[in-house]
């Protein structure tokens, strides 16, 4: 196999002042092959957005700080690239869709202006040509009557429509990598399904690799080739989607799966995992999940488990793995 498109190696991102720093992302490894979809799952605050922003090198500095590791993209380390080179990649070879469709577009410019700006930042298209291309893009993401809507302002669109525009913008320059940070979280359920379908069909057409961030395992099951489960700034389990659902190994993953809402029992989603994510600045000895884990033993509280392979392509960071029976 050739080198992967994106490979994150032991990435550490810290926040805070130089004296009081805490890691929001604490040494994670991820790889994504060309044209594939990698799901990054985990509860709120586990470091998903920080990871995705790090790939764009857009973690706000200060208070953020890249404390270690590499982000290899097409053979280059993004963390040591000159700013001008990085700028070419942003919106060029790497597109990004954010978690907040309602506020991610600039309210004072029309869709056309914002799309054109994206196109012209990476090419020398004329205004005319850029506009035509923008209409094409809006059409591609399924915005009705794009030639008319292109002169609308964001506030004239619904949340789902705005997210479509964001996707059109992210894909404008044919990126090889699309980072989608919870692209559907802020949308209502029927729109969520439409947006996910759209992403998938666009991927089929363009061959873009997608880093799909979500806290919803249901979304992962439908869209991803591989999954990395994050907890407290670390990847705790990594596997192809099928393997993960067939044989989840980390107690946290198992808990998440039990928490996937079913139509027959629409219960409170996270109630099945008691407790909450410890804040990043909390005591970091031992496994971060130990305090909530039903299987925790002494070693879990004393030492951090390494991410270790337990099958082909399947790794887990748990002292109790492999777990034979499901304890959920």
């Amino acid at each position: 196999m050739t080198q992967p498109l994106l490979s994150i190696e032991n990435l550490v991102v810290e926040f805070g002042t130089p004296r009081h720093r805490f890691p929001a992302v604490n040494g994670i490894d991820l790889t994504l092959e060309k044209g594939r979809t990698l799901g990054l799952v985990g509860e709120s605050g586990c470091g998903k957005s920080v990871t995705s922003l790090a790939v764009m090198r857009l973690v706000p500095q200060p208070p953020g700080h890249y404390a270690g590791g590499r982000i290899m993209f097409e053979g280059r380390d993004l963390l040591s690239l000159p700013e001008a080179e990085m700028r070419k990649l942003r919106g060029g070879r790497i597109g990004m869709v954010f978690q907040e469709p309602m506020t991610s577009l600039n309210p004072v410019y029309t869709l056309g202006v914002q799309l054109r700006e994206m196109l012209q930042a990476h090419s020398d298209l004329s205004d005319r040509a850029a506009r035509d291309r923008a209409i094409e893009l809006l059409d591609m993401v399924g915005l009705p009557s794009p030639a008319k809507r292109i002169d609308d302002y964001p506030h004239q669109l619904s949340g789902g429509q705005r997210q479509r525009v964001m996707i059109a913008m992210a894909l404008a320059n044919d990126p090889v990598l699309l980072i989608a940070d919870e692209p559907t979280t802020a949308l209502d359920v029927t729109v969520q399904a439409q947006i996910l379908e759209l992403l998938q069909s666009l991927q089929e057409r363009t061959g873009t690799a997608i880093l799909l961030i979500t806290h919803d395992l249901g979304v992962v099951a439908e869209t991803c080739d591989e999954v990395a489960v994050m907890y407290g700034g670390k990847v705790v389990e990594r596997a192809p989607t099928g393997a993960l659902f067939a044989d989840p190994q980390h107690p946290y993953t198992i808990g998440l799966m039990a928490a996937v809402p079913r139509l027959d029992a629409p219960a409170d989603r996270l109630a099945t995992i008691p407790g909450s994510v410890p804040p990043p600045w909390a005591n970091r000895k031992g496994c971060r999940f130990a305090s909530r884990c039903p299987l925790a033993i002494d070693v879990c509280r004393a030492e951090q488990p390494p991410l270790a392979a337990i099958g082909t392509d399947h790794s887990v960071a748990c002292w109790r793995a492999p777990i034979e029976e499901i304890a959920a």
């Binding site: 919106g91 060029g92 597109g95 954010f98 506020t103 991610s104 577009l105 600039n106 994206m118 990476h122």
Partner: peptide, 10 residues
């Protein structure tokens, strides 16, 4: 957020 988008556009 939209300023972050602007940065993400390169």
């Amino acid at each position: 957020d939209h300023v972050r988008t602007a940065r993400a556009k390169g």
